[in-house]
Design a protein around this nucleic acid. Structure first.
Length: 417
RNA sequence: CGGGCCGUAGCUCAGUCAGGUUAGAGCGCCGGGUUGUGGUCCCGGAGGUCGGGGGUUCAAAUCCCCUCGGUCCGCCCA
């Protein structure tokens, strides 16, 4: 028998109800702020993702790439931003282009707590403006999204990578600094010291952490312009009541970030994978994807991890799925079919039993459905042109209704609640 | 890619250490408890190639090897 591929999962009801709820909250928070939904292909020319940076493991060794029947080198999207920026380049919408997305992401890695080969992200991007207030807007909206879900034990780590020039100058300075201390680093980090010095900074290996404790920090070498940008972002977050802590060693995995870089961490998660969303500004990305220069800022947030964090905090409880009315028909199914559709077309949620089962069996299904009301049609009702209405919650009082009045009566009963 | 633990009915698990007749339980599911009625209760039933393959043995869920999958840690990240 076949099973879902390694590192992937089927999301079934009732778990999928939580997904719907989460996405609905996200759409609400960002829709209210003028962000529209963007749907991108799940695969792109591999070049789109390679521009994310040579230093990122996601690109270097975790990409799901393949050659299609036309011998094109493609890859399943490992994250959301690159495709959105590619679409921005392609369609040239008016700026700032504010969009949100919901997408599966694919990474070939070993599954672990909160880590899958296919995971899902919601995210948002604002492209075409360098205004630091957009950094603030995106971060604050992400923050509000988590709050709306009921998550409270999150912390926000914030850093600035400076402008493209700042970043590059700092990387060179850091490479030199690291070059004099390669021997002090953990072996696993030595390879990165020259080519990807920034990656060494947020290494989690003890030896490396000790070795870089007094390394120069990028916040100390920001240009005036970048420093002003960073200050404006902090002031905005302060004004909006978004609590954060500056982490001068926060680098994050994707190489394209400039200026603001941030990460939301779930304090309630004890597993190693506790980041529930992260983002940053990427002022050079559009150009590196072959478009005209266009600044942008955005983030991605992992749905699976958000739900894990919600579990740990007892937030976002699973809602009981239920219809309002259940139709029981033991006369062959015509009445059941017709009545359920009459109700549904009148805006009432209704379900029925199938397979011509006994009344007792159908009543059990009715009970399980969570319906408040049951409509019963047996031989007596069929002959007299009536339907028996039974209240499943209050001990089971029954009334007989003329068939034409059923929809109205049911609607009135439900309205009372 | 390195390491630890685990894989028995739809679900949660017992049985594996000391190999031995038709592999069990609870929950769930299906049917019944006479004359059309759920949620409680009672009775009955279906459902498992014991992850897969190979080996040892008269005999393997149980021992050995390989493999696949799950889970967790390193690492990476959402």
């Amino acid at each position: 028998m076949f099973q879902a591929p390694k590192g992937t999962r089927d999301i079934l009801p009732p778990e999928s109800d939580r997904w719907q709820a989460l996405v609905a909250v996200f759409a609400e928070v960002f829709g209210r702020a003028g962000y529209g939904l963007v749907q991108n292909p799940m695969f792109e020319d591999i070049g789109v993702f390679q521009r994310l940076g040579e230093g990122t493991e996601v690109v270097r060794k975790e990409m799901y790439d393949f050659f299609d029947k036309g011998d094109r080198h493609m890859a399943l999207r490992p994250e959301g931003t690159a495709s959105v920026v590619r679409a921005f380049n392609q369609h040239r919408p008016t700026v700032p282009w504010k969009v949100w997305y919901l997408t599966p992401c694919f990474r070939y890695e070993e599954p672990q707590a909160g880590r899958f080969r296919q995971h899902h992200q919601v995210g948002a991007e604002a492209i075409g403006s360098a205004d630091p207030d957009l950094d603030v807007e995106v971060i604050a909206l992400q923050h509000d999204f988590y709050r709306a879900l009921g998550l409270s034990q999150l912390s926000l780590r914030l850093n600035s990578m400076g402008s493209l020039g700042d970043r590059q100058a700092y990387a060179e300075q850091l490479a030199v600094w690291l070059g004099q201390r390669v021997g002090d680093l953990d072996e696993a980090d030595r390879a990165n010291a020259a080519d990807h010095p920034l990656r060494v900074l947020d290494s989690k290996r003890e030896r490396t952490i000790a070795a870089v404790a007094d390394a120069p920090l990028i916040v100390d070498s920001l240009s005036d312009e970048a420093a002003a940008h960073f200050e404006r972002v902090q002031a905005g977050l302060d004004a909006l009541g978004v609590v954060y802590e500056i982490d001068p060693r926060l680098v994050r995995g994707l190489d394209y970030y400039t200026h603001s870089t941030w990460e939301f961490v779930a304090g309630a998660l004890t597993s190693a994978q506790n980041a529930v969303g992260g983002g940053g500004r990427y002022d050079g990305l559009a150009e590196s994807l072959g478009g005209k220069p266009a600044p942008g800022v955005g983030f991605g947030a992992g749905i699976e991890r958000i739900l894990l964090a919600a579990d740990a905090e007892d937030a976002l409880p699973e809602a009981e799925a239920a219809v309002d009315v259940f139709v029981v028909d033991v006369t062959g199914g015509d009445a059941g079919r017709d009545l359920t559709f009459e109700l549904r077309r009148n805006g009432i949620s209704a379900d029925r039993a199938f397979d011509a089962r006994s009344m007792k069996a159908q009543m059990k299904v009715a009970d399980r459905s969570g319906a408040r009301l049951a409509l019963l049609v047996g031989e007596d009702e069929q002959e007299s042109g009536t339907v028996t209405l039974r209240d499943l919650r209050s001990g089971g009082g029954q009334t007989s209704l003329p068939r034409p009045e059923v929809a109205n009566e049911v609607a009135q009963r439900l309205a009372k609640e």
